[in-house]
């Protein structure tokens, strides 16, 4: 038994394949999905999507978005899905430093800054 994992970005359907298990990078931690998972809709954070397929493990960096699980189909809706090998850790480090320098005078600004930092950290972690 396997589950289908569909990753959709605004530009195209990134991939659509069968996997034995899927680990989603949720907003507040990782969540593993196996066969027969109860349906849910979740908010994704910035992190690594891990697939265990027959051909071996696969890892993708997910840039926020949502996940929907229904009847052994995992739908991932994200703005970007990049195989981890293609990530550049120096670039991620640079964007983290840039995020640290953002102003945080008002609560709204602080929130934007926090999101930028979380995103850069997720990218950095995935690239290592």
């Amino acid at each position: 038994m396997s589950i289908r994992c569909v990753v959709v970005t605004p530009e195209r359907t990134e991939f659509d394949r069968e996997a034995d298990s899927v680990v989603l990078p949720m907003y507040d931690g990782e969540l593993g999905v196996l066969n027969g998972r109860a349906p849910f809709i979740g908010r994704l954070g910035f992190g690594t999507l891990r697939l265990q397929t027959a051909a071996g493990p696969e890892r993708y960096f997910i840039d926020g978005g949502f996940a929907q699980v229904e009847k052994d189909v995992v739908n991932v809706v994200t703005s970007r899905a990049v195989p981890v090998d293609l990530l550049d850790s120096e670039e991620a480090q640079a964007s983290l430093e840039k995020a640290f320098e953002m102003p945080s005078v008002t609560p709204e600004q602080a929130e934007l800054k926090e999101t930028a930092i979380r995103r850069a950290r997720g990218q950095l972690r995935a690239s290592r």
Partner: peptide, 19 residues
């Protein structure tokens, strides 16, 4: 289907609108 919302429906909405 009864959906679970993780972490909560409000949190998802917060993200859906900008998206």
């Amino acid at each position: 289907a009864e959906y679970e919302f993780l972490p909560s429906a409000e949190s998802i909405l917060e993200e859906v609108v900008p998206t």
